[in-house]
Write a protein that binds this DNA or RNA. Structure first.
Lengths: 356, 356
DNA sequence: ACGCGCTCCGTAAACGTTTACGATACTATG
DNA sequence: CATAGTATCGTAAACGTTTACGGAGCGCGT
């Protein structure tokens, strides 16, 4: 906007100071909004910085003040989970960023290579001191990363709970609540033999899901049958396999709850191969709502939530655990189970005839 | 593995040196594999570093040697383009990392918030000097980021070509080749009126795709009809809309090529609502092979490729453009169009009766 | 005995920034 | 006029690391 175009990338704050004939310290203070600097000189400095395209070197800054203004989000690049995480991470990331950007914090994603141990990877990353705080995801049943971060005294929050993290901050989808609600609904429709699918890996959400399912059955006085808990991949193939296994049982269930909505595609296909019609002969409930699950016939009963808002909540939880920010977010809860809303479909809308 | 557990996080290289009663310079040389250090002392240093859990502070290192050993991959967090981009990016990322890790380079993903201008975001990131090199994705038809990176003299490569990047390194899927092949196949089956779907945004791949389509028609002496080029979102809904628009035409096409495989789900649904059977009344060709597209009835004709290997290629292209590494990858091509292989399905397997 | 080369190591100067501290000029107050 | 107070700025030290440079010790050939 000034008279000249951008000449060439700046060398450093020193050149900027020389160009302005001002001391380097004053320039720094001006840029960082410190109080003891004349408003007029501050304007000059800001204008010159803009014109010359000066941006503070992050390494120098971090080295001096021990902070990087960067939050890391660790994800596992190609675990089985990722096969189907549509834009799960990117939507949550959007929510995180909407909070972080208000405090000039940048979020970077740290994808752990699939041939590296997540624990070692995280250790390496925090030791490098390139992030001020960490968010870990895909938490496992027992997850040593909680201890690592706590011991390293680096602020963190988890996307997903864990037995190792009972004392630590996390936000997680309400898996057991969903299982509960699904069971209630199916029982109300007359079902007694209800199957459930859980992930094949040791990711914690599977256990939480199964636990909610078990407790709901108990509440209705229905015996828990381990044969009805099917471990399968969270994909269409997984859904196909689930159906396959269930059809092999001598006493086939009349309803099934899937931990991942797209599994319904494979499940529909498999049962229809045996002339069983979903929504008439078998009830199906999926987990999350996905646009592409809407196209299923019959429409899948599932659960809706805003992953963006979950990201917002998670960001606030994290900031409330960072010394520099906890005065801004003092009352944020340390742990949150994020609610989901039932979206009734046709896949479980029938009432079971009590023939059997 | 030594006798003691990890006592507490190291302060810095100075403490490590004191603990070993060795000068700080020697410790640094030992850790960095410099030649002029006794093999025995090196072993001592490495052992102590391992035991005390010392890892070099990245800020200090970067500041001194002007390099960070970090490669940035910029993505746009929630553009309309990519309904399920998690998969796409994470698989490509896997390929990238498999190359980078051999050179102790870490990859971080930089998600541009959707309310920030990608150009400004990138500018901010490179000015901070937190990455040694950049990979940009979702390149647009004209993309100022190429000029920015070239002017900033920071090594980079693009995932996706651009008119702005004709002189610069990139790797991209062979969109025009796919369009070409699809048209050839459809024409061989007797089709003359062939529609195509392109993204609604100004991402460049749509233009490349359409251009390949146009040239293929020309080669077969078929007139190019702009009405048959449908702009739509790359999602199931988009596929539904495409079908909707095509059915409205007075002279409906007999075949359609989709730029995104999952659009077929919506398209199937819409045409079947009008009692038109895909694979019998209308031919459909999708773009990439996706596990969940396999469950479509009739099976979708599409194109298979390895995104992991594309990542490998892209990484090598980038490294060949970095002064510190180009002696290792000297002969890497600067630009690559990545091939895809036809996977014949049933969705276009019929021959058109020349009734019309 | 002398010089030369080699191996190994210590010293200290950078890298770019922030910030505690002190200096200066000016204003207000007695 | 003297003093205190305030606004503004300059100086220099730190942050943790790498690396150019030089020095000490040693072996070896003359």
């Amino acid at each position: 906007m000034a008279h000249g175009g951008t000449p060439r990338p700046m060398k450093g704050i020193r050149q900027l100071a020389e160009h302005l004939d001002i001391s380097i310290g004053t320039v720094s203070r001006a840029l960082n909004g410190k109080p003891d600097v004349n408003e007029e000189t501050r304007k000059r400095v800001l204008a010159a910085a803009e014109q010359l395209g000066y941006v503070a070197n992050q390494s120098g800054r971090s080295l001096r003040q021990g902070t990087t203004n960067v939050i890391g989000l660790m994800i596992q690049s190609s675990r089985e989970t990722v096969e189907n995480s549509d834009n799960f991470f990117l939507t949550v990331t959007g929510g995180l960023q909407s909070v972080f950007s208000r405090h000039n914090l940048d979020l970077i994603m740290l994808p752990c290579p699939n041939d590296e141990d997540p624990y070692e990877y995280l250790k390496r990353m925090v030791a490098r001191r390139v992030v001020d705080a960490m968010i870990i995801s895909e938490t496992q049943r027992v997850d040593k990363r909680f201890d690592l971060l706590a011991k390293a005294k680096i602020p963190f929050a988890a996307l997903g709970r864990s037995l190792s993290g009972t004392q630590h901050p996390w936000a997680d989808l309400d898996f057991d609540g969903v299982a509960n609600c699904a069971v209630d609904r199916l029982v109300a429709h007359g079902h007694r033999r209800i199957a459930i699918s859980v992930p094949a890996s040791d990711i914690n959400l599977g256990f939480v899901f199964a636990e909610g399912y078990r407790r709901a059955l108990e509440r209705h006085g229905i015996a828990y049958d381990p044969a009805l808990v099917i471990r399968a991949k969270s994909s269409e193939q997984g859904g196909y396999q689930v159906a396959d296994e269930l059809l092999r049982l001598e006493d086939s269930p009349t309803a099934v709850i899937l931990i991942y909505e797209l599994m319904a595609i494979g499940l529909y296909r498999r049962v229809m191969e045996s002339d069983i019609i979903p929504g008439r002969d078998i009830a199906v409930v999926g987990f999350r709502e996905a646009p592409r699950a809407k196209f299923l016939q019959p429409a899948l009963t599932c659960f809706r939530t805003s992953l963006h808002d979950l990201g917002v909540e998670l960001a606030e939880i994290l900031l409330s655990n960072m010394p520099a920010y906890n005065h801004i977010y003092p009352t944020a809860k340390r742990q949150t189970t994020w609610p989901l809303e039932l979206v009734p479909g046709e896949s479980d809308a029938f009432h079971l005839t009590t023939s059997k």
